[in-house]
Amino acid sequence: MITVKELTKKYEKLTAVDNISFTAHPGEITVILGPNGAGKSTAIKCIAGLLKYSGQIDICSFHNKSLEAKRILGYIPEVPALYDLLTVGEHLEFIARAYRLEDGWQQRGDALLERLEILDKKDKLSRELSKGMTQKLSIAAALLPQPKAVIFDEPLVGLDPKAIEEVLKMFTELKEQGISVLISTHIIDTIESIWDRALIMSKGTILSEITREALGEQPLKELFFSLTGGVQE
């Protein structure tokens, strides 16, 4: 579970995120939607522990900046943060050592790479990979420790249609495993079939929080446009 209470992030006179609260529940896919400047990525970075903020953020009841929270949180940033001089395989080994994973992580890592169709790139340096491949490696590295909560910031950007389909399946599987899945995205059509709870942001605030059940037959995009004035990234 990811719990956010009264989260505020200011840059001098600019309030990027203004006193927002929400919960990404276990076994649910929660999506954050909003136009440019809405505060989506800032909120995600606060949850991941990368920015200072005011408010309270907990990961499965642990403060998000604690070691306990970091052990159970997976984070896929919008721009993959990889090491140029490590190979694909070495990235997974680095994660395994950092998280002190037990025997079996190699097979799990290979399965993730094969599923994302980059197993044949295992010995290539990350700087030799395409944008889509670095995104796939970032996803594999985040999922290798089998986190209890995962946050994705624009995870589908740069992926080909087949890879997008596979990642969407992964989202659903994570949900079925009881994991809290939080996704920030502007590709509303792509996530239309998988979301459970949607947060629509604008100018640092949450305009609406709604579940799929409560929305009924109305398309999520239609609600998004009605609240944001037809603005989409």
Rank of each mutant, 00 (worst) to 15 (best):
A24P: 07
G158K: 05
E233H: 13
K122E: 06
A43V: 03
H91V: 04
R100S: 15
V88K: 03
I2G: 05
I59K: 01
I95A: 02
P26K: 15
A163L: 06
T228F: 08
G74Y: 06
T185D: 11
G49S: 04
I118W: 01
A43H: 05
A81C: 14
A43S: 12
K162Q: 14
I139R: 13
Q232H: 12
S130F: 09
E12L: 12
G74C: 07
Y53E: 10
L82V: 01
I210Q: 06
F94M: 14
E192R: 04
T134C: 12
V79T: 15
G104R: 05
S193I: 15
L129R: 06
E192L: 02
A24H: 10
P145K: 10
A81N: 14
N36K: 04
Y83E: 05
G132I: 02
K175W: 00
G230P: 09
V88A: 02
A48R: 02
T87V: 00
R71F: 00
T185G: 10
T3S: 15
F225M: 03
I151M: 09
A96G: 07
D189A: 15
G216R: 02
Y83H: 03
I44K: 11
E192V: 01
E90M: 02
P145Y: 06
E102G: 14
N64F: 07
I76S: 04
A214Y: 09
R127Y: 15
L82T: 03
E154D: 03
G158Y: 00
D123H: 10
N64P: 10
G132H: 05
I72C: 00
R115M: 12
K136S: 07
K221A: 11
N36S: 09
P77N: 07
I206M: 06
Q218L: 15
G204I: 03
I20P: 09
K122R: 15
M1W: 10
A96Y: 04
W105F: 03
E28A: 14
V31N: 10
S66A: 04
R212E: 11
S21E: 00
K162H: 11
F152A: 06
A38H: 05
S61I: 13
I151R: 01
T23V: 14
G132T: 04
H186E: 01
I188M: 00
F225R: 03
I44C: 10
T23A: 15
D160Y: 05
K10D: 06
T42R: 07
G229E: 07
L207V: 03
L113H: 03
V231L: 15
P219F: 08
P35A: 05
I59A: 04
A38R: 01
D18N: 15
L101Q: 09
K148L: 11
I179M: 12
A141T: 11
I95L: 07
Q177A: 14
V17A: 01
I151P: 04
V157C: 10
Y11L: 09
L223H: 03
G104H: 02
K124Y: 12
I20G: 08
Y11D: 08
M1P: 14
L207K: 01
G216P: 06
K70Q: 13
E117Q: 15
A149W: 07
R115K: 14
I179Q: 09
T172E: 13
S180R: 13
I59G: 06
R100W: 14
L156H: 08
L14Y: 12
E114D: 14
L86V: 09
L67E: 14
S21R: 01
L174V: 05
L85G: 12
D103S: 11
G132E: 03
